[in-house]
């Protein structure tokens, strides 16, 4: 099977986000970049499917700035065979990213049997790229997948919806599957894996080489700003059991009379 994994490089979840001076994006200078956490599940799933189907290859794709290839090297250290990077600004919109991924798949010269990615990137939180790419490639896709099983031609996946309910789909490959936490437990890259990854092929492409132009941009952002700070609230000491009942009574009263939410 030709297995593809689309990964994104995003700021670490502990990062304090600061808008840049002209509000067109965020300050990226001191950010620690990591592989999008949901994409780790996709890499792991690709490696599990590869292990179950001898002769399969796992190719990782990423669209983003070239300055740091952490996400691709991590995926290859985990076990992926090769990688394609489409060099682009980090604030490209979902439509352009999907088009670039489609172009990179085409440049790789193979037909995908399975494309995996995370259900969302935790930077722009759009949840669009998997569905856009599948529609562009005219293949079926299921998003927010928490269980995967199947053969080289047919798979069964479970998609999580409201309240933890699951939709069960039977899917004909080739297909695009967007993974949620819970589908597997991603492995850590071993030291030999990290050493090997340095020698694995990483092809860098430009946006022009994958036929993405500025007019492909569908979504434009501006005025990046921090959320308004809340004025500080009221704090009550209820560590003393004699005061506890009174504090609770007061807070419940305030929720009704002051906050008017109950």
């Amino acid at each position: 099977m030709n297995i593809y994994v689309c990964v994104k490089q995003v700021p670490d979840t502990e990062t304090k986000i600061i808008p840049n001076a002209d509000g067109t994006f965020i300050e990226t200078g001191s950010i620690k970049w990591i592989m999008n956490p949901y994409d780790e599940f996709a890499v792991e799933q690709a490696l599990l499917v590869q292990a179950a189907n001898a002769g399969s290859t796992v190719t990782v794709l990423r669209v983003g700035s070239v300055k740091d290839t952490e996400a691709l090297r991590t995926a290859m250290a985990m076990g992926a065979d090769d990688a394609f990077l489409v060099e682009a600004a980090d604030n490209l919109d979902s439509y352009s990213i999907a088009k670039a991924l489609k172009g990179a798949i085409s440049k790789s010269g193979k037909n995908p049997d399975l494309i995996l990615t995370g259900k969302q990137a935790i930077d722009d939180d759009c949840l669009q790229v998997p569905q856009i790419l599948a529609t562009m490639l005219d293949i079926p896709s299921v998003s927010v997948v928490v269980e995967y099983s199947g053969s080289t031609t047919d798979i069964v996946v479970k998609r999580e919806i409201e309240g933890g309910a699951l939709e069960v789909y039977g899917v004909k490959l080739p297909a695009m599957i967007a993974c949620n936490k819970g589908i597997n437990t991603p492995r850590y890259a071993s030291l030999p894996g990290i050493m090997k990854a340095k020698k694995k092929p990483l092809v860098v492409l430009s946006l022009a080489e994958v036929s993405v132009v500025e007019s492909d941009r569908r979504v434009k952002y501006s005025h990046f700003q921090l959320p308004p700070e809340k004025p500080s609230g009221k704090k009550f000491d209820a560590t003393d059991s004699a005061k506890m009942g009174g504090v609770v009574k007061e807070v419940v009263g305030l929720l009704r009379t002051e906050a008017k939410v109950i």
Binding site: I17, D123, S215, Q225, P227
Partner: peptide
Amino acid sequence: RPLFAGKCFAKVELSG
């Protein structure tokens, strides 16, 4: 819309 899980907000416009 919020980005980075609500750590910041931005204005969004559509074209095409």
